[in-house]
């Protein structure tokens, strides 16, 4: 277990360099001049163009630019945007917002998803099962921006239960976007658990447990559910990684100043340092989330050894 853990952590190092370089190269390869785009349709003096290029080493070849970047990084400098804002400040400001949004979305999808999956899986063919089936299909097939606008109009503008946009109303502001963001995964969780439960309920050991005269609660709770949750946990962990990476559409619609929107704008503006910083952080989060899941497997299923 200890060795496994250390090996997995060490794997992060090559991934870190690989990811930063790849992303850096991709931003570098984008066509167009980011400095020129700053001025939009207005003209830009050649001297200003030069001053910008010099300051951000834009005239240098890729490898030199990457060297500058990594050089700064080992000194704890994540670089700055063309507006002169340190990248680290932006990440510090934006990641908590995305994390909070991800947290609520995760809670929403995990709790309701497992509940719905449990109900549907235990009573196959019943009304509840069909209800879960139909409603999840509906949600999966509707694009997220439609869900977002609908939620804004109904729950925000008309009923006024939740604020529509921004984060100025504290935790309350996160509920509506978290619901929209989590709704898709909620459906997956519910259906995944339903299927997995269905299979396990027919397994021999469950029959044995029932034959032993254990209560239904114990059979389901202790013997079936724990096993059935393994695929669900895998999915949830990967999903948490995705959620932490930010949700461009949801963050834009609900005006949440999170990391997803930031990285989208950064790519569009070809803000190399910002893109690399955010994406690399995302990669690291993803890797740790996966590691956590692998450790969790062992807890859920004693047969799995690490």
């Amino acid at each position: 277990m200890g060795r496994y853990f250390i090996r997995r952590v060490l794997e992060v190092i090559p991934v870190f360099f690989g990811a930063t370089f790849l992303i850096f190269a991709m931003v570098f390869a984008l066509p167009g001049d980011p400095v020129r785009a700053l001025a939009g349709e207005k003209p830009l003096s050649p001297s200003v163009l030069n001053a910008f290029r010099e300051e951000y080493h834009l005239n240098d070849p890729l490898i030199v630019q990457y060297g500058h970047y990594i050089g700064g990084l080992v000194q704890g400098d994540f670089g700055q945007t063309f507006q002169g804002e340190p990248v680290i400040d932006i990440m510090k400001e934006k990641f908590p917002i995305t994390a909070k949004l991800a947290f609520f979305a995760f809670l929403f999808e995990a709790i309701l998803g497992i509940l719905a999956g449990l109900l549907a899986g235990l009573r196959r063919g019943s009304f509840v099962d069909n209800l879960v089936l139909v409603s999840t299909i509906t949600v999966v097939s509707v694009p997220v921006f439609v869900l977002g606008f609908l939620a804004q109009l109904l729950l925000g503008a008309q009923l006024k239960w939740f604020p529509i946009a921004g984060i100025q109303n504290g935790t309350k502001s996160y509920f509506l976007p978290a619901m929209v963001l989590g709704s898709l995964s909620l459906c997956y969780v519910a259906r995944l658990l339903r299927t997995s439960l269905g299979e396990n309920l027919r397994a021999d050991y469950v029959r044995t447990a029932t034959a032993k005269g254990l209560s239904r609660l114990r059979v389901v709770g202790r013997h079936t559910l724990r096993n059935s949750l393994i695929p669900v946990i895998t999915f949830l962990a990967v999903d948490l990684g995705f959620l932490m990476g930010g949700a461009i559409v949801t963050e834009t619609i609900f005006n949440m100043p999170g990391i997803g929107r930031e990285v989208f704008l950064a790519v569009r503006g070809q803000e190399g340092a910002l893109v690399v910083g955010i994406v690399t952080a995302g990669v690291l989060i993803f890797m740790f989330a996966n590691l956590l899941v692998d450790l969790l497997y062992a807890v859920l299923d004693p047969r799995i050894r690490l």
Partner: peptide, 13 residues
């Protein structure tokens, strides 16, 4: 001056 990323959201607001 609230800052909106999407003018559609501003309109709904």
């Amino acid at each position: 001056f609230p800052i909106y990323a999407d003018i559609n959201t501003a309109y709904t607001d």
